[in-house]
Amino acid sequence: MKVVVIGGTGLIGSKVVEKLNRHGHEAVPASPNTGVNTLTGEGLADVLRDASVVVDVSNSPSFEDDAVMEFFRTSTTNLLKAEATAGVTHHVALSVVGTDRLQQSGYFRAKQVQEELIKDSGLPYSIVHATQFFEFMKGIADSATDGDTVLLAPVKIQPVFSDDVATAVGRTAVGTPVNGLVEVAGPEAFQLDELIRKGLAAKNDPRTVVADPHAPYFGAELEESTLLPGPDAHLGDTHFTDWLAQQ
């Protein structure tokens, strides 16, 4: 089975390519580095020739509201059109748990538009909703930093190892389209401020984490369960403390 992985040279994409190839599939990484640009359409027709499945794990190079909306709207539209022409029979996209609950954020509004375009395309699809990756904890801290203080809402979060996300994406890609959502999360939940406090301490980062119920998360205010998956989520095997110890 030929699987084209858009964003296939990135953190998740490279892992998906490696896992699929190891299991006997023909996984082809596609990104601007390999001559495929979903924003312009360059290289799409060629790379999609004879492909059965497309996995989109690409991300916007900018998180600025207008830029991220332009990226997901244009790239997804171009990709779906090219897939329909090429006869692709399964579109898999990676998105985020809680996207529909985080619409105060420009980034998550753009991800919601991406999801709606996929649902309305008429192509068989599966959307994988993942919780925040362990590797993204520093990014969360940086986005919430003011001087030497990190302001975070004391809400629940259930982060997941990127390798476990890649496994879920790969498994979904070679399965039957669900025409709906598949959720993946880590094996345990934390309080967001405590999680970031642990992560920063492990790296000897001197910033102070302060719990603030109204602290925004990439522009959105959080409720207790905003970032948590549902009860049917697939849970990864890797625990945060084990991952942290290996860094």
Rank of each mutant, 00 (worst) to 15 (best):
G122M: 09
G122R: 07
L123K: 10
L123F: 02
L123E: 05
P124G: 08
Y125D: 09
Y125P: 12
S126W: 04
S126L: 09
I127H: 05
I127T: 07
V128W: 10
H129Y: 14
A130R: 11
T131H: 05
Q132F: 01
F133S: 05
F133Y: 15
F134C: 06
F134Q: 06
E135F: 02
E135W: 01
E135S: 14
F136V: 01
F136I: 00
F136D: 12
F136M: 13
M137K: 01
K138G: 11
G139L: 12
G139H: 11
G139C: 00
G139M: 13
I140C: 03
A141I: 02
A141Y: 02
S143A: 15
S143L: 07
T145F: 00
T145D: 08
T145L: 03
D148M: 08
V150L: 04
V150H: 13
V150A: 07
V150W: 03
L151K: 14
L152A: 10
L152I: 05
L152Q: 11
V155K: 03
V155E: 01
K156P: 00
K156R: 15
I157M: 12
I157E: 01
P159E: 09
P159C: 10
P159N: 11
V160K: 07
V160Y: 06
F161V: 06
S162E: 11
S162H: 14
D164K: 12
V165G: 04
A166Y: 08
A166T: 07
T167P: 00
T167M: 11
T167E: 14
A168P: 02
G170R: 12
R171P: 00
R171T: 15
R171D: 15
T172I: 15
T172S: 13
T172P: 02
T172H: 02
A173C: 13
A173F: 12
V174S: 02
V174W: 08
V174F: 02
G175W: 12
G175Q: 10
T176H: 07
P177E: 02
P177Y: 02
P177S: 04
V178R: 13
V182G: 05
E183C: 04
E183H: 12
A185G: 09
A185S: 15
G186D: 06
P187D: 07
P187Y: 03
E188Y: 00
F190E: 05
Q191E: 10
L192Q: 05
L192N: 03
L192Y: 01
E194A: 13
L195Q: 05
L195C: 13
I196N: 06
R197F: 00
R197D: 15
G199A: 11
G199H: 15
A201D: 14
A201V: 02
A202D: 08
A202E: 09
K203E: 14
K203I: 00
K203R: 15
D205L: 09
D205C: 08
R207G: 07
R207V: 00
R207E: 06
T208S: 13
T208R: 12
T208F: 01
V209A: 12
V210D: 05
V210T: 14
P213M: 10
P213T: 05
P213Y: 04
P213C: 06
H214N: 14
H214G: 00
A215K: 11
A215H: 10
A215N: 10
A215F: 05
P216K: 07
F218K: 09
F218W: 13
F218R: 03
F218E: 07
A220C: 06
E221R: 13
E221A: 06
E221F: 04
E221V: 11
E221I: 11
E221P: 00
L222C: 06
E223M: 12
E223A: 14
S225D: 15
